[in-house]
Design a binder for these strands. Structure first.
Lengths: 194, 194
DNA sequence: CGAAAATTTGACATGACTCAACTGGAGTGG
DNA sequence: CCACTCCAGTTGAGTCATGTCAAATTTTCG
């Protein structure tokens, strides 16, 4: 279950009063999801963001041919959601899948929006989080533009060494935008030239 | 030159007091740049963001072989900077080039950070801006993962019809991550199958 | 242990790249 | 006003990275 300590953990170095902490805590919901479970499919409407306490999830896009494209992974202390739907388009675009049994904190965008009004310093906190996330995305875009599949894979395992442990290769491939076969050949190539 | 009206324009629907508007205005600098001018090279240190009043700019990454990769375009009412350097890495990564004679408002990150403290509602404003920008990037990443060069080009001219007027094809190619030759063939193909 | 899932391998296809040459338009200066 | 140059764009021929399809092998896990 959840204790109020989770609020301090999520909002790291934000200095919160007892009242503020209690208010935030009242908006949180504790969720456990099993491996393989899909939190949200493209059919449903998304209203929440999820903070990962433990485990691993991913968001992916499913095209007309049934191919999957992984947009984001989330492990401990990361946030995950279908932000395209949540923040602009309303219509759900992504699936959120649990790829390792996980413990999450769920909060609705509506609650968050209320908290932004009642505890203005949360705006600063999320703005800074967003700046970091924005930069990570710019780097991923640059990486897609400038690098070969092999280089992108090497970057991936270098930048996210902890991911490799419990994320399957076919998920990594779908994140890098290549086929599982190509990834397999790349890995073979790397193993040989060592 | 700049009048205080620019502040209301930049901060759209934020309700500002006279004092707040004056304070913000005191931090802004008016800049004009000519076509071809490079505002910032990878050698220099970036300290500012730029708001485009008129004209067009782009940021691009220059690799060891001298190839250019366009990360972002900015036209009227857009912000542009080397956010990778500004918000996380400090070391400059991108070049900011003016591709059409432009009028800009420049503001240092330092001034912005002061304003965030003195006028907390600006946090909300920028958080919301960032959310939108974040979603645009997620879409671009998805587009890179799921679509062919031809589809990405068609998407580009559909989503940014106003860009095509003054952005050269070779810049569009470098944004899409393809060569000018490939773009030329794609355009030929589209023209023929109409 | 056995079935299902994930990965690897092989043969072949293809989209996009490279290099090199050519075209066409926009200045510019004699 | 023509010749020249520069720059963007186009075209062609050959190559290479990655995809596709099909099958074999290995790993995972109930």
């Amino acid at each position: 279950m959840l204790t109020k300590a989770i609020v301090d953990h999520i909002f790291e170095d934000v200095h919160l009063t007892v009242q503020e902490r209690t208010l935030i805590f009242s908006k949180l919901e504790y969720v456990t999801v099993k491996k393989g479970q899909v939190l949200l499919t493209q059919a449903q409407e998304i209203k929440n963001q999820f903070f990962v306490i433990e485990g691993c999830l991913r968001t992916f896009y499913l095209d007309e041919l049934g191919k999957e494209y992984t947009l984001q992974f989330a492990v401990k202390d990361w946030w995950i959601s279908d932000y395209i739907a949540l923040w602009t388009d309303n219509k759900t675009v992504l699936n959120i899948e649990c790829i390792r049994t996980s413990k999450l904190v769920s909060i609705s965008q509506k609650s968050l929006d209320q908290l932004f009004v009642e505890i203005p310093k949360l705006n600063t906190f999320f703005r800074q989080k967003l700046q970091k996330a924005f930069v990570r995305q710019e780097k991923r875009i640059l990486s897609n533009l400038t690098k070969s599949a092999k280089e992108r894979y090497l970057d991936f395992i270098r930048v996210y060494p902890d991911f490799e442990k419990f994320i399957k290769n076919f998920h990594i491939a779908s994140y890098l935008g290549i086929t599982t076969q190509s990834l397999s050949r790349i890995r073979k190539d790397i193993a040989q030239n060592t």
